[in-house]
């Protein structure tokens, strides 16, 4: 049996198995690295850069960089959290995030991460883009105003549902989410409300119809505690048990 390898995360040792990313190892150790496009069940996308940490002095995405023995990783430093806040502010001004009328409010990872970073203002000038919703599907609504282009729905539909309902299209500031059909309408695809892709969006884009604000304020996911507490999986001490 080989000795457990470790790297340090904000000064504390984190064990890892060869091949694990910094994000995977941190998650397994019950440590929180802010993230938006990463999800434990899917291949890393490395696009939102919220998970940017400083590893041995260099800025890298924790969800794509492989853990190395002895690596010194900084995570929740004022400098890195400040950069994260700036990224969040850009996401907020780029879309239309009107939380008071969003059914995802209180359960939204973007919002919860912004709270965690202490974001008090979007700071930049608002874009107020025009992004019509797609209400064609009988059970599911698409409100593109809130899309942060994390591509989780793209990956879930392709890799878990085997359907390829969603895709990212365009480049740079014109990047946007599309529905993979000539008509562009969700109703014309083989999408089903039971798909993994129907329940993966970290923000309020892919929403079930006729549910509304079902959970009262106070009992939503991030009401009792911040994301850094709620989203941390309790550590299983498998290492010791072995």
């Amino acid at each position: 049996m080989s000795e457990t390898q470790t790297f340090s995360l904000d000064g504390e040792d984190v064990p890892f198995a060869p091949g694990q990313t910094v994000m995977q190892a941190a998650q397994a150790a019950g440590r929180w690295i802010p993230h938006l496009c990463w999800h434990p069940d899917f291949e890393a996308h490395g696009s939102c850069k919220l998970c940017t940490v400083r590893a041995n002095g260099r800025l890298v995405a924790a969800c794509t960089v492989a853990a190395q023995p002895g690596m010194a990783v900084e995570n929740r430093t004022p400098d890195l959290d400040g950069r994260r806040q700036t990224l969040l502010q850009m996401l907020f001004v780029e879309g239309n995030h009107f939380c008071p009328s969003c059914e995802k409010s209180g359960n939204c990872l973007l919002q919860a991460t912004a709270y965690e970073m202490g974001m008090m203002t979007p700071h930049f000038d608002m874009f107020y883009p025009d992004r019509p919703v797609d209400a064609s599907h009988p059970e599911t609504l698409l409100d593109f105003n809130r899309c942060i282009l994390c591509a989780l729905c793209v990956r879930a539909s392709r890799d878990a549902d085997g359907k390829n309902v969603f895709a990212l299209s365009g480049r740079g500031i014109r990047s946007h989410l599309i529905v993979n059909h000539e008509s562009g309408r969700l109703a014309d695809t083989d999408f089903a409300a039971t798909d993994r892709a129907a329940n993966i969006c970290p923000v309020g884009v892919i929403l079930p119809k006729r549910r509304g604000f079902a959970v009262p304020i106070g009992r939503r996911k991030y009401d009792p505690a911040p994301a850094s507490v709620v989203d941390v999986v309790p550590v299983k001490h498998e290492e010791e048990a072995r």
């Binding site: 995030h97 009107f98 008071p100 009328s101 008090m120 203002t121 608002m126 107020y128 883009p129 992004r131």
Partner: peptide, 14 residues
Amino acid sequence: ACAVNGGLPAQRNH
């Protein structure tokens, strides 16, 4: 919200 990001009245902006 309205002072901070435009809020409900800004929902007319598009």
